[in-house]
Amino acid sequence: MTTRILRWIVIGFLAAGLPIRAAMAEVYYSKDEALELAFGTDAQVEPQSVFLNDEQAAEIERVAKAKLDSKLFTFHVGKKNGQVLGYAAIESHTVRTQPEALLVVLNPAGDLTRAEILAFHEPPEYQPPARWFERLYGRSVDGLVLGQGIDGIAGATMSSRAALDSIRKVMTIYRLALKPEAD
């Protein structure tokens, strides 16, 4: 009798259209596709690893107001005809309970020029739209704080906050650890 009841409960959940976690997962771009979005099809892209020391890591967390998961970070440097086009990082983090991967693209000066969701495993209604990201371009690290010139998105507050944390981390790592090397 319990097996029969359990079967009807499962059928009821499915018939009611309750989401199955795997069905919500969306991967929009592969790594290669993301780097093509960042720099175009004719750019040469080279990975550049950044190894943070303890002082750098502490300063990055303080400035970015976000926790680092690792002291090893990889940027992808886009070049065309020997000229640096910019720097891209793929930042993965947990939004609420599921992962998100975000492409963060900086120009050679370290300004945000593009942010693109590569994969989003939370329910789609929690995903910030592209036009929200576009309003972030050109802002300083200090200007990328929810509620301080950046509007939240109803129903996507945690996603917005996680994206802003990632963008601030990437910009700060670039400014404090990579840019001095590039200069």
Rank of each mutant, 00 (worst) to 15 (best):
M1R: 01
T2I: 07
L6E: 04
W8I: 02
I11E: 13
L14R: 03
G17P: 05
L18R: 03
A22L: 02
M24D: 14
A25Q: 05
K31R: 04
K31L: 07
E33Y: 03
A34E: 04
L37A: 02
G40D: 14
T41F: 00
A43P: 01
V45T: 03
V45L: 10
E55G: 08
Q56N: 06
A58Y: 01
K67T: 13
D69W: 06
S70L: 03
F73H: 00
F75D: 08
K79D: 03
K80S: 11
K80L: 11
Q83P: 01
S92R: 06
S92C: 09
H93V: 04
H93T: 07
H93S: 09
T94C: 06
V95L: 12
T97N: 15
Q98H: 07
P99S: 13
E100C: 12
V104E: 10
V105N: 07
P108V: 03
P108I: 01
D111Y: 07
A115E: 13
A115W: 14
L118T: 06
E125R: 14
Y126L: 09
P129D: 07
R131K: 10
E134N: 06
Y137E: 05
V145K: 02
Q148C: 04
D151H: 04
G152N: 02
I153V: 10
A154L: 03
M158I: 12
S160I: 15
R161H: 14
R161M: 14
S166N: 14
K169V: 15
V170N: 09
V170K: 07
M171H: 14
I173D: 03
Y174R: 02
L176P: 15
K179V: 05
P180F: 02
